[in-house]
Amino acid sequence: RSVMTEEYKVPDGMVGFIIGRGGEQISRIQQESGCKIQIAPDSGGLPERSCMLTGTPESVQSAKRLLDQIVE
């Protein structure tokens, strides 16, 4: 099973929602998708923050879907 890492951008203002209280939302996304998510510590003043998604292609797709649901 191939593991890939893909960069994915999320709106900087939504990072708090994505991480959730005490990190529980991001933990849930990682468990549900099976994908490891690393969010950049800051956006460098840009409107979007970079996330690194690491996992199988299916888990990366799944994580993107879950992130999109939060961001919308």
Results as ranks from 00 to 15, higher is better:
R65M: 12
L67H: 01
L53E: 00
G55K: 00
G34V: 02
S62W: 08
L53S: 00
M4Q: 06
L66Y: 07
P41I: 03
I39T: 02
E72N: 05
I26V: 05
I39F: 15
G20N: 05
V71T: 07
K36T: 08
L46E: 15
S33R: 01
E6F: 07
T54Y: 10
Q61S: 13
C35W: 00
V15M: 11
L53N: 00
L67V: 04
G20F: 03
V3P: 06
R1N: 15
V60S: 01
L53A: 01
G45D: 14
C51Q: 00
E48M: 06
L46Y: 06
I70R: 13
I29R: 00
I19L: 13
R49F: 02
I39H: 02
I70N: 04
G45R: 07
V71C: 10
V60C: 09
G16I: 04
V15L: 10
K36N: 08
D68E: 12
V10N: 01
G44P: 08
S33Y: 01
L46A: 12
Q31D: 15
K9L: 08
E58R: 07
L46N: 12
D42M: 07
E24M: 06
K9H: 06
S27D: 10
I70G: 05
K36P: 01
G34L: 04
D42R: 11
I29H: 01
E72V: 15
G34D: 06
D68L: 08
Q69D: 15
E6Q: 15
I37H: 01
P11K: 07
S50F: 03
A40T: 12
Y8S: 02
R49G: 06
Q38P: 00
I37F: 02
G34E: 08
E32W: 03
D42T: 09
Q61A: 14
K36F: 10
E7P: 05
G45Y: 06
V60L: 13
G55D: 00
S43T: 10
L67W: 00
G44I: 08
E6R: 12
F17M: 15
S2P: 08
G44F: 05
E48H: 05
I18R: 02
S62T: 13
I19Q: 11
S33W: 01
E24L: 05
D12H: 10
S62P: 01
C35A: 10
F17W: 13
D12F: 08
V60F: 01
M52D: 04
V3Q: 14
G44L: 09
S62E: 14
G16S: 09
I18M: 09
T54I: 09
R28T: 08
D68Y: 07
P47C: 08
G13Y: 14
C51E: 00
D68W: 10
P11M: 04
M4S: 04
G55M: 00
F17N: 15
E6T: 15
I26H: 04
Q25R: 12
A40L: 09
T56V: 10
P47M: 06
V10P: 02
G45K: 06
A63T: 02
S43V: 08
V71H: 04
C35T: 03
Q69E: 15
Y8E: 01
A63K: 00
L53P: 00
S50L: 14
R1P: 02
C35V: 06
S2L: 09
E58S: 10
S50G: 09
E24C: 07
S2Q: 15
P11F: 03
I37Y: 00
A40R: 08
G23H: 03
P57T: 10
E72L: 12
R28W: 05
E48Q: 06
Q61I: 11
D42A: 10
A63M: 02
G34N: 08
M4K: 09
T56M: 04
M14R: 04
G20D: 08
E32H: 03
G13S: 15
I37M: 07
D68S: 13
P57E: 13
